[in-house]
Amino acid sequence: MPVPPPTGPLVTRTTLTTDLRALGVLPGETLLLHSSLSALGWVCGGAVSVVQGLLDALGPNGTLTVPTHTGGNSDPAQWRRPPVPQEWWAGIRASMPAYDPAITPGDGMGTIAETVRRWPGALRSAHPQTSFAALGPRAATITDGHATDCSLGEHSPPARLEEQNARVLLLGTDFSTCTAFHLAEYRMASPRTEMGRAVLTPVGRRWETVTEVDVSADGFDELGADFERDGAVVRGRVGGADALLFPVADAVAYAQGWLARHRA
């Protein structure tokens, strides 16, 4: 059976930059990107062209940030998609590779984010489960000081991005991916949970358990729809993808009020 030709649109580095500028991306600004390569259409050069187009739109003074989370580095007792047999748990805890910012790949963050992580000059934060990578002159400011017991709170890149007046770019993804909303959870009386993970220490690998805010994206699509209705969200098209652009600070402030009203 013949394979049908791609339906397009044809997306290139140049068309991406043009579309991003038309959306409102500004040279010199800082972006937090959540993205889907497949949503863009047929991209000549794949994720590399996307990153090049983003860097072209931002210019040499702009900074691009992406999530490079490693959710698989977690306690197997909490795994649900899928669960693993209980008799495996001890073996997994004993053998899970420790998080290493230099080599541990992101888990489920997409090809574009993984390309940024591996880009020459990219810096990556230290949290063993919710790291971020950044490219540009503000990369160190964003990634340094990510406390290993503060996944998405005051001592994490989302808080630094808020301070830098960064904006979120959802490129072919929806509000359920918006990590900025999680910063609002840290500023509320949110429940806490124990989190297990493998970490590197000066004396080698070990398994540790810490207490973290129990973040959840439940309801983020509804939250995002209300935020877009009431807030300063720019919606447009980049390639074949829907794209949304909005300030981190506005998203966090709106989420705090919304979550207080909608979560018990």
Rank of each mutant, 00 (worst) to 15 (best):
R138W: 06
A22G: 02
E154Y: 03
D221L: 14
D221W: 06
L20Q: 11
C178W: 01
D75V: 10
G224T: 12
H146D: 07
T211G: 01
G72S: 11
Q164I: 00
D221I: 13
V168T: 15
R197I: 00
R13K: 13
Y254D: 01
P158R: 07
A134C: 05
E162S: 09
P137Q: 06
R167F: 03
R206I: 00
T179H: 01
G204W: 11
G136Y: 08
T30E: 00
V213T: 15
P137Y: 04
P27G: 11
A241K: 05
S190D: 02
G236L: 04
H262R: 14
P247A: 15
T68C: 13
V233C: 04
P157C: 02
G231C: 08
H69F: 15
Q256K: 14
Y254M: 01
D19H: 15
A113C: 14
G121Q: 07
D75W: 07
T15C: 05
G45F: 08
Q256M: 14
L10C: 05
F181K: 01
E87S: 08
V116I: 07
V210P: 03
R93Y: 08
A47S: 15
M195V: 14
A39E: 13
V199A: 00
D221C: 09
E154A: 14
A39V: 11
A159F: 11
T179G: 02
G236W: 05
W79C: 06
L123E: 15
W88D: 11
T209F: 03
W89M: 04
G136I: 08
D214Y: 05
G121I: 05
L64M: 05
I103C: 11
G71M: 03
L55W: 02
I142Q: 04
V238C: 07
L161A: 09
R93F: 10
P60V: 06
F246V: 02
G53D: 08
V210M: 02
G108A: 01
R263E: 13
Q164N: 09
M96F: 03
T15E: 05
T12K: 07
A180F: 02
R93G: 06
G24C: 02
A166P: 11
A140Q: 14
T193L: 11
A113Q: 04
T104V: 03
V3R: 13
L26Q: 14
A90C: 04
N165A: 14
